[in-house]
Amino acid sequence: MDTLRAIEAFAHSVELGSLSAAARALGTTQPTISKQVMQLEQQLGVRLLRRNAAGLSATDEGQRFYERARRMLEDYEEAVTDVRAGIQQPRGLLRVSAPVTLGQRHLNAMAIEFLAQYPDIRLELLLDDRFVDPLEERIDVSLRLGGTLPQNLVGRHLATWPRVLVASPAYLTARGQPAAPQQLLEHDYLSYASGGDGVLLQGPDGLVSVPVQSRYRVNNAVALFDSVLNGAGISLQPTWMVAEPLAQGRLVRVLPDHTGPAQKAHLLYAPRRHQPLRVRVLVDFLSERIARLPGADMA
């Protein structure tokens, strides 16, 4: 049995959901794919696939084997390409996870620039505000804002942004500009839904906690930003989000001598002794580009 071809047949079957689809992708027949997968199961002594009327799916053992097999196949493909070309040329599929707002505002444009620079790479950008485990969801690189870093992943620090209080000129004209943190209690304070009540600020006199209670909380950063922009109240926002509207005068700093807890950005990826070249060039590219975003501090 050609073990490498059998593993490739198995991986395609998992990804495409059927033996016939795997056969078409590999330019062979369904009986050939079925035989290769069966021989692989016999060699390993475990059942890798479930076959029933509803379709094809990996068993628990099959899913674990698939995750390692896919990385092995990708490394093999890259090694063959390097040998044939005589030089290292990044190629293949990259799956990247990132928060929705940062992805829409900045990462999407970075992805297009990256693809223009590396024409042999394919990229899937998956925008989701929940924490995505790269190991479980076959993500090559995950961009994470804040939160505790998982110990089973490599976390590369990219940048740190302060959070600043902002409001629209119309809101401040109508309600007045707070002169001290405690005056926030007299204003409409808007916050992210999972953040809870209260705000912690760092100012000339040190840390101060203001027990503001938000009448409006929302679990989407774009909706929160738009609410502030439209005059609904005061909000704490990272500088990468508000640098442009502040420069344009569409937003105004509130309590400019005070900042909230900083927001840190990290790239997360699986710990591997030899990362595929396409992952390495993406990590380097994003590290350089994200550090350029407004207000970023590499310290």
Rank of each mutant, 00 (worst) to 15 (best):
R24T: 12
V96F: 15
I87M: 02
E77W: 06
G295W: 07
R175V: 10
L255P: 12
F10I: 05
D197K: 01
R175E: 14
I121N: 15
G155L: 06
N152D: 11
N220F: 04
Q183W: 08
Q213Y: 09
V281L: 12
A262G: 01
A174Q: 14
Q151Y: 05
Q183P: 11
A6V: 04
D128L: 07
A9D: 00
S191I: 03
E77C: 05
I290V: 13
T173D: 12
Q263H: 04
L145R: 07
P99K: 06
V218R: 08
V279C: 13
Q275K: 12
N108V: 08
D297E: 07
Q63K: 12
L143S: 09
V208W: 01
A69W: 01
A167H: 07
K35N: 09
E137K: 15
A53T: 00
R122M: 06
A109Y: 00
A265K: 10
L145W: 06
V218A: 09
L236R: 03
T160Q: 10
Y76V: 11
S214P: 06
A291W: 00
L49R: 00
A111I: 05
P31Y: 04
T81K: 05
A232C: 10
Q89F: 08
R144E: 14
L236C: 04
A179H: 07
V222C: 09
V154E: 14
D133M: 11
P162F: 00
R130C: 08
P256F: 01
V96A: 12
P238M: 05
H12L: 00
L201C: 13
G196V: 13
L201A: 14
S194N: 10
A58C: 04
L293H: 03
F131W: 10
T160H: 03
Q36S: 09
A232V: 02
L135Y: 09
H12T: 01
R250N: 15
R47D: 05
D257W: 07
L123W: 00
R253M: 05
R163T: 11
G155N: 07
R47W: 03
Y189F: 13
R84M: 04
D120W: 05
S57I: 08
A79I: 00
S13T: 14
L56W: 02
E8S: 14
N52I: 11
D140W: 06
V218I: 08
E288Y: 00
Q117L: 10
V141E: 13
H12E: 01
R273V: 11
P134Y: 07
E74R: 02
V46L: 14
L201Y: 12
N152I: 09
P150D: 13
T81L: 03
Q30I: 02
N52D: 15
R5G: 04
P178E: 06
D60V: 13
V210I: 11
M241K: 15
Y66I: 03
Y216L: 02
N220K: 07
